[in-house]
């Protein structure tokens, strides 16, 4: 699946799933711009992607005007974004009884509002081009819920609703909008969980193992490719059979 000559923007590309997505799209021929929240993070992404001609850039999704400025810079230096992967996300887990407003707001801003802002920012160029791919990284938690993640699950379910609505709005312009919903993937985010909880979770996975970031990246590559031209508004669950919605 070749993405030769296409400009792809992957948010949160420093580590884990985002890093695997950025590398995979770049290896498939896309000109990848991976974002990190710090200069040093962006530099590290740039080094990693350099072999394929990709670059790292700084993006703090919460910062006013930051996304629009980034899209402008990319358009000038590399061309219009043809593939947007909204991957950047954080967790602020805790039981609802104890959840602070800050924990809720931080998740909504970083995980959900950023999807709205980035998708809107790339849309003008995609509408003109009469083609485009937007792929939002949701989560199995957004579909099945998880104790201690009311904020995260709400944001991820929100992404799925956003995806369906946007897909209906822009479908007539050849732009597809889809989600990939990772299950339990072996990353820094999940390594932070206590071992007993990890074991219990693995017991619910039909394939009996954690997923790899590459499993998610491959699903994103498919949705970004011409092979997925007739798929829009969908959530592709990549979870080893942990949930079969």
């Amino acid at each position: 699946m070749s993405l030769q000559g296409k400009v792809a923007l992957v948010t949160g590309a420093s580590r884990g799933i985002g890093a695997a997505i950025a590398d995979t799209l770049a290896a498939a021929g896309a000109k990848v711009i991976g974002t990190a929240t710090s200069e040093s993070g962006a530099a590290a992404i740039g080094e990693r992607l350099a072999q394929w001609g990709g670059v790292g850039m700084v993006l703090n999704v919460g910062e006013e005007g930051a996304i629009d400025a980034l899209i402008d810079t990319i358009a000038k230096e590399h061309g219009d974004v043809a593939i947007l992967v909204n991957n950047a996300g954080i967790t602020r887990d805790g039981l609802l009884m104890r959840m602070k407003d800050d924990d809720w707001d931080a998740i909504m801003d970083t995980n959900l509002k950023s999807v709205f802002k980035a998708s809107k920012a790339v849309l003008r160029a995609m509408m003109k081009a009469r083609t485009g791919r937007i792929i939002n990284i949701a989560s199995v938690v957004g579909a099945m819920g998880n104790a201690g993640q009311t904020n995260y699950a709400a944001a991820k379910a929100g992404i799925m609703g956003f995806t369906k609505s946007m897909a209906r709005e822009v479908g007539s312009r050849g732009i597809t909008v889809n989600c990939v919903a990772p299950g339990f993937i072996d990353t820094d985010m999940t390594r932070a969980l206590p071992e007993a909880q990890r074991d219990a979770l693995v017991g619910q996975i039909a394939l009996g193992r954690l997923g790899d970031a590459q499993d998610i990246a491959d699903a994103v590559l498919f949705l970004a490719s011409d092979k997925a031209a007739y798929i829009t508004g969908q959530t592709l669950h990549v979870n080893g059979g942990m949930l079969m919605p």
Binding site: R124, M127, E169, V170, S172, R173
Partner: peptide, 11 residues
């Protein structure tokens, strides 16, 4: 025109 057309037209 539909609503999206009018937005594009203004653009």
């Amino acid at each position: 025109a539909d609503s999206l057309d009018t937005v594009e037209l203004v653009m």
